[in-house]
Design a protein around this nucleic acid. Structure first.
Lengths: 398, 398
DNA sequence: AGACAATAGTCAGGTCACCATACGAATAGC
DNA sequence: GCTATTCGTATGGTGACCTGACTATTGTCT
């Protein structure tokens, strides 16, 4: 039921989205792009400038007749969104401006699993405030990425974060003064892949992340697949190999028992091997795996091939069902991609006719926070009038 | 980029959708529902009446003070949509009015697989024209349901309909004078389940239909899952049981080799058995299966249990990944549902924590045509101004 | 150099759709 | 009959976009 003001909001959002997705351009170009008239676009741009969301850039007109246009571009000094990731052994914060540029990034080693959740929230809150202090713009929102199932803003289950299910995260972060959203980390990572990087705006993509378990996020038709209870896109416990190894979830044959980090390390190293020391930093251990594989260690290579094949078997199901344009591998899959891709694509090609392209994430471990920051910015992109005027409109009368 | 007229269209659509989804009501009630003012709703309703889409009903006000309101309701005599199904051995047509009432229904036995596609289109065209002649309203569109993969309005593959891939269906049906859409039959059936019946407007549902193969349609977040090439939701060739029976697609272990009609009949009857006579009507054969099962025939019951279990194994993957509120079984699965549901739910419960409810379709073999007719009506619901005025507005001046 | 065409952006007036308010119409309860 | 209540419509107002004209700035041609 659009009313007049909503028309205005929608058109402001259209202009803003155009500038974000297609770069700076003149008012006249915006008018041609959107179908609105030049006069209307002028008015819209004026309002966006007043709200600090866009700014006029330099004149630009390379070698063509006619008056050159004034470029209009997103104003990065305006608003920004905050993504926070809570994981087993670290907290991460990333601040993104409207342009999609990273304005700040912090990472803090915290034994989240072994610390009371309330305390973690205090640490996180401090970290956020501290990070924002160094960023000029105004933060408009905060999204918390959690490795677990989230439903209606509440953590339902989080196998690796005892104490988090049911926790009121928003209340714990109220000190930041920002509206708080909570979401699944893999879902946010999928949105991050969708919003930036080589697969930006690929309407149908699947993101798979290898951690202790396996996380998944599905974007279909340009929207995140959520499902009826928010559990859509969870791939870790797909029952692909009945009767296989027992899973932490109490069942058997879940996909993550095949391709999770534990499966890799067990196959690649004996119990005493430093690779299987949970105290060592994960990236160090992954680097060690890469080193051994490059050195030609047979056991390591065999383990990686098995993982790759297991990934291909599962990916085949995802591709057949969801028909994504690309399957993006993140987490440890991305680190070890060079050894996984060949067996993966072989297993995939054996099972589906038109395999979606498989690619490695380029966002690394920042995918979830980046997606979170992106989500935090979304309300502004949907309705720019939520941002107050910085340069107030002139008062017409006393 | 909403412009003024689009505001009008959107509000007309809002009113129309409200009447369709929540039944007849007064203008005042519509105003309260939509947030628009009574005056605006009056204007909108007036325009919808002019276009023949809604009509005033009787006065209605049971036992309450105040002036009684005039009920406004969808006008079934106005526009209608046409669904056409092309299948291996029949053509079907169904005409739906705005209210969702079936205005006409025809079914014609045609050896589609054995007849040149162009000829089939002529027969279909005649059948459509003939059917519409008996319906008062104006048809606004036509959707053709095809058992195969459809991409961009063109049939890509249709295992059971040689000659159809690549066919220009719209040109063949141009004689009807209606805009033609082509879509996958299972997708349309899923939309039909979504638009009517006990699961109407369940935003996340999965539809599975048992035919020679197995078809699937997925509605997620209230929208049909299409995938990047239109192959989303195709479940027949999910590779769930590696190394199993060969499939018509050239691979092995596809789900439809386990739960397709062929698998059931092979397991339930020897080659000479009349059940396996492809010449007999499918419904007769299914009735025979039901009779044997009810009589306690061990082999039949065992076959049905195996199918049910196989369905559960696959459904577990679908439920875990898509998290639907309900999985609807259509086609032959619905006919034999009483024997399939128990093993199905057992297999499902063993694999997923929160099994989506499983239900049998109540739409029978009309699901695809009903979904098609619904799709054909969609443009009118999205923008009621596409329908011309029947009672022209008064001319103000000479 | 000057005229001309082309393009950018602004301005003033107009149209259209929704809103606010008031009012007549129809009903129940006293 | 009177009042309270609710429905639907009529009237005038506001806001947002549109139309058309105008100025500003540049390149090109003569």
């Amino acid at each position: 039921m659009p009313t007049q003001g909503q028309v205005r909001s929608a058109n402001l959002a259209t202009v803003l989205a155009r500038l974000r997705d297609h770069g700076p351009r003149s008012r006249a170009r915006l008018a041609a792009d959107t179908g609105l008239t030049k006069a209307t676009v002028s008015s819209l741009v004026g309002e966006l400038v007043d709200r600090g969301l866009v700014a006029e850039g330099e004149l630009h007109r390379p070698g063509s007749v006619g008056r050159p246009g004034t470029l209009v571009e997103l104003d990065g000094r305006g608003v920004c969104g905050v993504g926070v990731e809570v994981n087993v052994d670290y907290l991460a914060v990333l601040v993104l401006d409207l342009r999609g540029t990273v304005r700040a990034e912090r990472r803090l080693a915290v034994d989240v699993a072994g610390t009371p959740a309330a305390e973690v929230l205090v640490v996180a809150s401090d970290l956020i405030v501290e990070t924002l202090a160094a960023v000029p713009g105004t933060a408009v929102g905060l999204t918390v990425a959690v490795p677990g199932a989230v439903q209606g803003g509440v953590v339902r289950t989080a196998p690796n974060l005892p104490g988090w299910p049911g926790l009121d995260v928003a209340a714990g972060l109220a000190g930041t003064g920002l509206p708080v959203t909570v979401a699944n980390d893999a879902d946010l990572s999928a949105l991050a892949e969708w919003s930036a990087g080589p697969h930006a705006h690929v309407a149908d993509l699947v993101y798979l992340t290898g951690e202790v378990g396996v996380g998944g996020g599905v974007v279909t038709g340009g929207r995140l697949l959520r499902g009826s209870t928010g559990l859509g896109g969870e791939v870790g416990h797909l029952a692909l190999t009945p009767g296989d190894a027992p899973c932490g979830c109490g069942r058997r044959g879940c996909w993550e028992t095949v391709v999770g980090l534990g499966a890799l390390l067990r196959a690649a190293a004996d119990p005493g091997d430093p690779l299987r020391d949970p105290g060592r930093d994960l990236e160090d251990r992954l680097a060690e795996v890469v080193a051994r594989a490059r050195a030609g260690d047979a056991r390591t290579l065999a383990a990686l091939t098995d993982i790759g094949t297991g990934l291909g078997v599962g990916a085949a199901v995802l591709v057949a069902l969801l028909d994504p344009a690309v399957v993006v591998l993140g987490g440890y899959f991305a680190h070890l991609g060079e050894f996984l891709l060949d067996p993966l694509t072989a297993a995939l090609a054996a099972r589906v006719d038109a395999p979606g392209r498989v690619a490695l994430s380029t966002l690394g471990f920042t995918a979830a926070v980046r997606g979170g920051a992106h989500v935090a910015l979304q309300p502004v992109l949907d309705d720019p009038t939520t941002v107050p005027h910085v340069r107030p409109a002139l008062e017409a009368h006393a």
